[in-house]
Design a protein around this nucleic acid. Structure first.
Length: 554
RNA sequence: GGGCCUGUGGCUUAGCCUGGACAUAGCGCCGGGCUUCUAACCCGGAUGCCGGGGGUUCGAAUCCCCCCAGGCCCGCCA
């Protein structure tokens, strides 16, 4: 609903009842908005809530600014139902391209997501990060924010050193047709097996890490080569998932440009700094009991130090810094935020998501226990192609493949984004391959159905005067969209959009089965076609914000 | 041992931050609907001590405390 409507009613209640909080909220099935202010006034006025509600309604009805709103007392509740003029305005806005776009902002936002270690392919856990992040990114752009999306490339960690050791010491020939990231995983897994057998290898790995930090050209080159190859693999996977980054930022750059040393220097001056063999921060005054190590005894920096430099850099270039991270990063994320505050730097906001596990236990790249995103994409597309072939046998094969790719993508993205990030999940093939209710394809189908009607209608004479209960219900569902976008970016909860899109599809499907569009005549036909156009446009905008193709036929 | 997250019909899940009108939907189950705009659909039905126990409140799935269960974290890894 438009904010001004909320604000108008909110103010009216506060003035009429003489309260500071109108207790105004969405009225669900009862009303567009409802207030429970009568409850809270009962004690003070020594009157029954029902009586207070009745009295307030009588007063509110006198206000000219509420003349188009139906106001009624239902027991102690005060219900507000918007008039037809409101519904007309909504549809008028919703038929225009870009419906749901909010006003342009000047606040610059940087969003980091995925940032998986380049030691093996993206698996179904990593892409939860990608999909949450990419959906947030799309929502931020829709909400009018200038946005940069970054991938932080961890190119100098122990895992990468292990990969490089493997390429140096093991048979590392790439198999025919083997994707780069899968190749790297194979060598990484094999190298880890060798390390388990021979502890001496760890020394060689440490040596590699020291060399890369000191900038030894040959070692740096080797690290860069394998990391780049892995990222090439990631790019293919992410493209298939409709996930995009504006910039890949390399961790090692923050060593080479001196900013890590600079941050370490500043940290040394802080009262929380402690130096013995290592340099670490004592953050116990903020509730962190463990040491926050910044530099190893051999003089090399740790991930935390480079991460601080990276975030300081982001804070200088952007007004709002957001990271999407797995729940295993909660502690270090909180320590990072705390340290940034100590340094007087901008504190990043962090969206955490809980783990995706397999029925047999948690995933592990090192142990080779994971389902890769590439395998998931292949399977889902195959299943989608079979489905399309059954439903549309008359279409040429390349057409069916195209639809299957879009349907498969929708199934994967929706399946992941619909769940609240704070919920841990167990990967389930049956659910991933389900194209029915509460799925991405279900919403695509509703959109394609609307497109089909519009196609057959030839011309649409716009008419915004809605009448029936089904029409009004659908229009009010459409009206919620801009508010949903606003909430997604304010609360950093992309699943709200997923739920909304499904509810809009539900409402449209009901409308479709109860109200004839093409077969009605005159004004009725005009207004219903206009409504279908509004739904189609809103579904399209919502799907695209979810990173799902709004295909016109399926 | 400590910290964080989660616990809602057989299964999955919304709502929880910002307390309010019969707790949201899907899968599965039972029954109905394709000579009708795309049935990847729609309509109806059964299924809930909202993990357990206390507390705050006129009112608690929602806020507070305790307990139980599961996940994650507590490294000179990232």
């Amino acid at each position: 609903m438009p904010d001004d409507m909320f604000a108008t009613i909110d103010t009216a209640i506060r003035e009429t009842a003489g309260v500071t909080d109108a207790l105004l909220a969405e009225g669900g099935e009862h009303a567009d908005l409802a207030s429970t202010v009568a409850f809270s006034l009962a004690k003070q006025r020594k009157q029954a809530p029902v009586k207070i509600a009745q009295d307030l309604v009588a007063e509110l009805k006198k206000r000219p600014e509420l003349s188009t709103v139906t106001i009624e007392a239902k027991g102690p509740y005060i219900n507000f139902i918007f008039g037809k003029a409101y519904v007309s305005d909504v549809i008028r806005a919703a038929v225009k391209p870009g419906y749901g776009n909010l006003e342009t902002k000047t606040q610059r936002v940087v969003l980091e997501h995925t940032s998986a270690n380049p030691n093996g392919p993206l698996h179904v856990g990593h892409i939860r990060n990608s999909i949450i992040g990419d959906t947030l990114a799309r929502a931020f752009r829709k909400a009018g924010y200038p946005l940069e999306v970054e991938y932080y490339v961890n190119d100098m960690g122990r895992q990468i050193a292990i990969v490089v050791w493997g390429f140096n010491n093991l048979d590392s020939t790439q198999l025919p047709g083997e994707k780069e990231d899968a190749h790297i995983a194979r060598i990484y897994i094999a190298a880890n097996r060798e390390i388990e057998k021979d502890e001496g290898i760890t020394q060689q790995v440490n040596l590699l890490m020291q060399r890369v930090e000191s900038g030894d050209p040959a070692t740096v080159e080797k690290f860069k080569k394998e990391v780049s190859r892995c990222l090439d693999g990631f790019r293919v996977t992410m493209k298939n998932l409709n996930v995009a980054h504006d910039k890949f930022v390399w961790e090692s750059d923050f060593i080479r440009n001196g900013s890590t040393e600079e941050i370490i220097g500043r940290l040394k001056e802080k009262p929380q700094a402690r130096e013995d063999e290592t340099l670490y921060l004592d953050l116990s005054e903020f509730g962190f009991e463990n040491k926050y190590v910044i530099r190893r005894s051999d003089g090399t920096s740790v991930y935390a130090a480079r991460d601080l430099a990276f975030h300081a850099w982001k804070g200088k270039n952007f007004d709002r810094v957001i990271d999407v991270l797995g729940a295993d990063h909660k502690l270090i994320g909180a320590q990072l935020q705390c340290t940034m505050k100590v340094l007087g730097e901008k504190v990043p906001e962090i969206v955490f998501f809980e783990f995706v596990s397999l029925p047999e236990g948690s995933m592990s790249t090192r142990a080779g226990k994971f389902i890769s995103a590439d395998d998931l994409i292949t399977e889902v597309r195959k299943r989608a192609f079979d489905e399309v072939t059954v439903r549309r046998p008359e279409l040429p094969e390349d057409e069916r493949r195209k639809i299957a790719a879009s349907v498969g993508l929708a199934a994967i993205r929706y399946d992941i984004v619909k769940v609240s990030p704070e919920k841990s999940t167990v990967f389930d093939w049956k659910e991933a391959l389900d194209f029915e209710r509460q799925s991405g394809p279900y919403i695509q189908y509703a959109h394609a159905r609307a497109c089909s009607i519009l196609e057959k209608a030839d011309d649409v004479t716009e008419c915004f005067e809605l009448e029936t209960e089904q029409e009004i219900a659908l229009a009010k569902q459409i009206a919620r969209f801009p508010g949903i976008i606003k909430r997604v970016v304010a609360e950093l909860r992309p699943n709200l959009l997923a739920i909304y899109a499904r509810e809009l599809a539900d409402t449209f499907n009901s409308f479709y089965h109860f109200e004839q569009v093409l077969k009605s005549e005159g004004k009725v036909r005009d207004r219903r076609l206009t409504l279908v156009l509004a739904v189609q446009n809103t579904l399209k905008e919502a799907l695209e914000t979810l990173g799902i193709d709004a295909i016109r036929s399926m």
